[in-house]
């Protein structure tokens, strides 16, 4: 039974696309058939983060409008065989997405894949509500700061009211993914602590992704961080989160960067 997962947040720039790519790659590496769908029509990024921008021919809007078949628009990842991408269109806007078209595409993807990961655009408008519309589960990406937490709270409210599952009276499974977490700054009170965020949002924690240069490096190289440097702290955190998504019980730790002796001496002053 295929699972449709939406990666959403309300606020922009918190790491939705990075997380969708990293989780998708980690799930695919365990042998599952995974597709990552970019819903950010007009501002697509997922193709860049996945390193597939030079291979896009058809996109989600083409499939919805019947200009292309789904198989023509899907791009298979070169590194992981079971990972595919359905890119968004850069030249259109969210009005090109129709509820019927999305329903048809998602239903078709459910037949082909084990996991359908929908990368939601920021905001609470058409693009975001259509991305979450058919989801069975949601990953709410949140940074440990108040504006991100409040926007996430708003999105959780929408997940509980505007999705198909909610309208059928079923419960939507929601997971919190805390990204850009800096243990040192949280301890110094410059960031919200994990327990503060959990207390406010009251949904289960899927993982804590530490703030890291690795994320930026991987995205500039066009590779999900879980593939680019699997030993890095954020990659390990994403891999743990992906195992939890599959139902495994993994103890919650915040992976830390491995630091050299010199870095350990001088690391603190830089921050």
């Amino acid at each position: 039974m295929a699972k449709v997962l939406v990666v959403t947040s309300g606020k922009g720039g918190v790491g939705k696309t990075t997380s969708a790519a990293a989780l998708g790659a980690a799930l695919a590496q365990s042998g599952l058939n995974v597709v990552v769908v970019d819903f950010d029509v007009g501002l697509r990024n997922l193709d860049l983060v996945m390193g597939a921008e030079r291979r896009v021919v058809f996109d989600l809007v083409n499939v919805i409008q019947g200009d292309a078949k789904l198989a023509q628009a899907l791009i298979r990842d070169k590194r992981v065989d079971s990972l595919s991408l359905l890119p968004a269109s850069q030249t259109r806007d969210k009005d090109a997405l129709t509820p019927e078209g999305i329903a048809r595409v998602i239903a078709e993807l459910r037949e082909k894949f084990d996991w359908v990961i929908c990368d939601s655009p920021a905001g609470i408008e058409r693009g975001a509500t259509l991305a979450m519309r058919h989801a069975d589960q949601a990953v709410v990406v949140t940074n440990p700061e108040v504006s991100s937490v409040r926007d996430s709270d708003r999105i959780i409210g929408l997940l509980d009211s505007k999705t198909e599952r909610a309208e059928r009276g079923e419960r939507m499974e929601k997971h919190l993914l805390l990204t850009r977490y800096d243990t040192g700054r949280a301890n110094r009170g410059e960031m919200l602590k994990t327990e503060d965020v959990l207390e406010i949002l009251s949904i289960p924690l899927l993982g804590i992704i530490p703030e890291s240069q690795e994320v930026l490096r991987a995205s500039n190289l066009g590779s999900p961080v879980t593939l680019n440097n699997p030993d890095s702290a954020p990659a390990r955190a994403y891999a743990d989160a992906a195992r939890r998504l599959r139902g495994e019980v993994v103890p919650m730790v915040v992976p830390e960067e491995k630091r050299g002796f010199v870095q350990r001496l001088f690391g603190r002053r830089v921050a």
Partner: peptide, 27 residues
């Protein structure tokens, strides 16, 4: 029985409202 999320509005003119959970900022 659940938290009232940011952006949600509960309106009940008939009487008391009891919330088993938190009322978020912006609710």
């Amino acid at each position: 029985d659940e938290p009232v999320r940011s952006g949600q509005s509960i309106i009940y003119p008939k009487g008391d409202v009891t919330i088993i959970g938190s009322v978020a900022s912006g609710a």
